[in-house]
């Protein structure tokens, strides 16, 4: 298959993925925006005023990067897991499997589709945040890089979940019992400096903690973690998960009998 054919196939998958979540925008784009708006109103505005400062910033400013990151993580993950599992379930995945599309093109298309939704919701949430606080970005390059890498990591993770899932229950277990606790304990709402030493060490084992703090560093210029260390972790996750996904596709796990 020629390079331009592969690009057309990749573009086709991305367009299909974007068309899917845009078609059901009331389920995919609006609910996360409303949820995050409630966080801004309740935690940022009402409760935040009584909390005062956190990590040297107004509480609203402090939680804003974490809430944007939370929406990106959840939506990148859920887009890929629900889209790919539905394709498996309805057997529509066969459309692309019988075509001469290399595995890495299939994976890249699905992942970029997940990233597109994550970033679309992130953009909506960011626009909503502007109603509550001024947004200044201290390090734009770091901000953009970390959000792209994070959405890629969770799109890849969602793909693995979808490959192993055998029922619709299986695609909600990881987001409910793993992802949500990791996000809430990842320093979205508090600075890790507030925790006892033991829990600070435990927080260091949570990859989302590095992503949230690096994103916060990009926007506010302040972080609980070493940014270079965080990028190294993100890089390892992207490479490790991408390789795992390619291996699963090559072996036809869950998609070829």
């Amino acid at each position: 298959m020629f390079t331009n054919h592969k690009y057309i196939a990749f573009e086709t998958i991305v367009i299909k993925e974007i068309r899917r979540f845009s078609r059901i925008w009331l389920q995919t784009l609006v609910p996360p925006a409303i949820t995050i708006a409630l966080y801004f109103v309740i935690f940022g505005n009402l409760v935040g005023r009584r909390i005062g400062e956190m990590g040297g910033f107004q509480y609203m400013e402090f939680i804003m990067p974490g809430l944007i990151m939370m929406s990106v993580i959840q939506n990148s993950y859920s887009n890929v897991v629900s889209s790919f599992f539905s394709q498996k379930f309805q057997k529509t995945i066969e459309e692309v499997l019988v075509a001469p599309v290399p595995n890495y093109v299939i994976l890249s298309g699905v992942i970029v589709g997940g990233m597109a939704r994550g970033l679309a919701v992130g953009a909506i949430v960011t626009m909503m945040a502007l109603f509550f606080s001024d947004l200044r970005i201290e390090h734009p390059l770091i901000t953009i890089t970390v959000i792209l890498l994070t959405s890629a990591v969770f799109s890849l993770a969602g793909f693995i979940n979808a490959v192993f899932a055998n029922s619709f229950d299986d695609i909600s277990i990881i987001p409910t019992f793993v992802l949500t606790p990791l996000i809430y304990l990842g320093g979205v709402f508090y600075s890790v400096q507030l925790l006892p030493t033991f829990w600070q060490v435990v927080s260091g084992l949570n990859p989302i903690f590095y992503m949230v703090n690096t994103f916060r560093y990009g926007i506010l210029g302040s972080s609980d973690v070493d940014v270079y260390w965080a990028f190294l972790i993100l890089g390892v996750f992207v490479v490790g998960l991408y390789s795992s996904c390619i291996w699963l596709l090559r072996n036809g796990k869950g998609i070829r009998t």
Partner: peptide, 13 residues
């Protein structure tokens, strides 16, 4: 869209 998407998988502009 179903037919156009399938053609896209085969690299048709």
């Amino acid at each position: 869209d179903i037919v156009i998407t399938q053609a896209g998988y085969y690299g048709l502009p």
